[in-house]
């Protein structure tokens, strides 16, 4: 199954479970306090996922390494390479 298919399956499964409990035939049997939580649950989950995404991307952005040393080392290596290649007769 494609990744899209997996997502659709998952959403359909969760969605129908939610619909059955919150709106459908099982509705009256769910105690009212639970139903109050259940009704806006999809929206809560969506918001929670959004927050998680923002927090994750933000954290990773803040901890993205700046490789200053690697850049300095590369410059050094480039200098050495130039000198050695010139010595061996390369015309740049």
């Amino acid at each position: 199954m494609t990744k899209l298919g997996q997502w659709l399956w998952g959403l359909a499964l969760l969605g129908s479970a939610w619909a059955a409990l919150a709106l459908g035939p099982l509705g009256p049997r769910v105690p009212p306090p639970c139903r109050q939580v259940l009704l806006p649950l999809p929206v809560y989950l969506l918001v929670a996922f959004g927050c998680y995404s923002l927090a994750t991307v933000g954290y990773r952005l803040a901890t993205f390494n700046d490789c200053e040393e690697a850049a300095a080392e590369l410059q050094e290596h480039i200098g050495a390479a130039r000198a050695d290649l010139r010595r061996r007769g390369l015309q740049f």
Binding site: V57, L61, F64, N65, D66, C67, E68, A70, A71
Partner: peptide
């Protein structure tokens, strides 16, 4: 220890 050099904040984002 992976990372990048020479990227601004927008590019990283």
């Amino acid at each position: 220890n992976g990372g990048v050099y020479g990227w601004d904040l927008k590019r990283k984002l």
